[in-house]
Amino acid sequence: KVILLEDVKGLGKKGDVVEVKDGYARNFLIPQGLAVEATKGNLKEL
């Protein structure tokens, strides 16, 4: 699961917690600054 930092077409809006494949999160969303891993600490910051 990841928390979206920006609106991502076809996935969700900023602040949404979405389930995506590990590779998509690690190789695209997180490096592009579009999402962060949905850890307990990150979820509390919402």
Rank of each mutant, 00 (worst) to 15 (best):
G33L: 09
A25H: 05
Q32W: 12
N27V: 09
L46S: 10
T39R: 04
V2R: 00
G15V: 00
L43F: 04
F28K: 05
R26F: 14
V36I: 14
I30M: 07
K40C: 11
L4F: 02
V8Y: 06
L11N: 01
E19Y: 14
P31V: 15
L5R: 07
L4A: 00
G41K: 10
I30N: 02
V8G: 01
V2F: 11
Q32Y: 10
G33I: 03
V8D: 00
V2Y: 12
T39G: 09
I30V: 08
L46E: 13
L34N: 02
D16R: 05
N27G: 14
G41W: 03
V20W: 01
N27F: 12
G33E: 06
L34H: 06
E19A: 08
K13D: 06
G23N: 14
K44D: 15
K40P: 15
D7S: 09
G12D: 00
N42L: 04
K44M: 15
P31K: 15
G15N: 09
G12V: 00
Q32I: 08
F28T: 11
G23V: 12
L29F: 02
L5G: 01
V36K: 10
K44Y: 10
D7N: 11
L11P: 00
K1Q: 13
L4T: 00
K40G: 13
N27K: 11
A25P: 02
L34Q: 06
E6P: 00
A25Q: 03
F28V: 12
L43C: 11
K14S: 07
N42F: 06
F28H: 14
I30D: 01
G15T: 02
L34E: 02
K44T: 15
E19T: 13
V2E: 00
G41E: 15
D7E: 10
L29A: 01
G41A: 12
L5I: 12
L46K: 02
V17Q: 10
L43D: 13
K44C: 10
K14F: 06
V36D: 04
T39H: 08
K1E: 11
G23D: 15
G23A: 14
G23Y: 12
N42V: 04
G10H: 08
Y24L: 06
N27Q: 11
L43E: 07
I3Y: 10
K40I: 15
L34F: 11
G23I: 12
K21E: 15
K9A: 14
G33W: 03
D22F: 09
V17W: 06
E37T: 05
V20G: 02
V8K: 02
L46I: 09
E37F: 07
L11Y: 07
D22C: 09
G12T: 00
Q32G: 10
R26G: 12
Y24D: 12
V36R: 06
T39P: 09
L46R: 01
V2L: 12
G41R: 07
L11K: 02
R26Y: 13
E45I: 04
K40D: 15
I30Q: 03
Y24H: 08
G12P: 00
A38K: 05
G10S: 07
K44A: 15
Q32L: 13
V36N: 04
K40S: 15
G23S: 09
K1H: 10
F28C: 07
G33F: 08
G15W: 14
L11V: 12
I30R: 01
L5Q: 06
V8M: 11
R26A: 13
T39L: 06
I3L: 14
D7A: 09
Y24S: 04
D22I: 08
E19H: 10
L4M: 04
I30W: 03
G23L: 10
L4I: 01
N42C: 05
E6I: 14
N27R: 10
K9E: 15
Y24I: 09
E45S: 03
F28S: 05
K1N: 10
A25N: 05
L46Q: 10
P31Q: 14
G15C: 06
V18F: 04
K13E: 08
N27T: 10
F28Q: 07
E37I: 11
K9M: 12
K14L: 06
V18T: 03
V18G: 00
K13W: 12
V2S: 01
E45R: 02
L5P: 01
V2K: 01
Q32S: 12
N27I: 09
K9L: 14
G10T: 07
L11A: 03
L4P: 00
F28D: 05
T39Y: 09
T39F: 03
E19P: 05
K14N: 04
N42R: 01
I3E: 08
Q32N: 13
G41F: 08
K14W: 03
G10L: 07
I3S: 03
D16V: 07
D16N: 08
A38W: 08
L34D: 02
K13A: 13
V8E: 01
Q32T: 12
K21T: 14
I3W: 08
L11Q: 02
K13M: 14
F28N: 09
G12W: 01
Y24W: 10
K9G: 11
V20D: 06
D22L: 07
A35D: 01
K44Q: 15
K21C: 06
V8W: 04
I3M: 10
A25R: 03
Y24P: 03
E45M: 03
L34Y: 11
K40A: 15
N27L: 13
V8N: 02
N27M: 10
I3K: 06
L4K: 00
P31Y: 15
V18S: 02
D22T: 10
R26L: 13
K21V: 15
K14R: 13
T39N: 11
G41S: 14
V18W: 03
G33D: 03
E45A: 04
L34K: 10
D7V: 05
E37N: 07
L43N: 07
A38P: 06
G41Q: 14
R26T: 12
L4Y: 00
L34P: 01
F28E: 09
V20Y: 02
D22E: 11
K1A: 10
L43S: 05
V2M: 09
K13T: 10
V8C: 06
G10Q: 07
D16F: 08
L5K: 08
A35Y: 02
V17H: 08
V36H: 07
E37C: 09
K21Y: 11
L5W: 03
L4W: 00
R26N: 15
L11R: 02
K44N: 15
K44G: 10
K44I: 14
G41M: 06
V18M: 09
Q32E: 11
D16M: 13
G23E: 15
K21Q: 14
R26M: 13
L11M: 06
L46V: 08
R26I: 13
K14Y: 05
G23Q: 13
V36C: 06
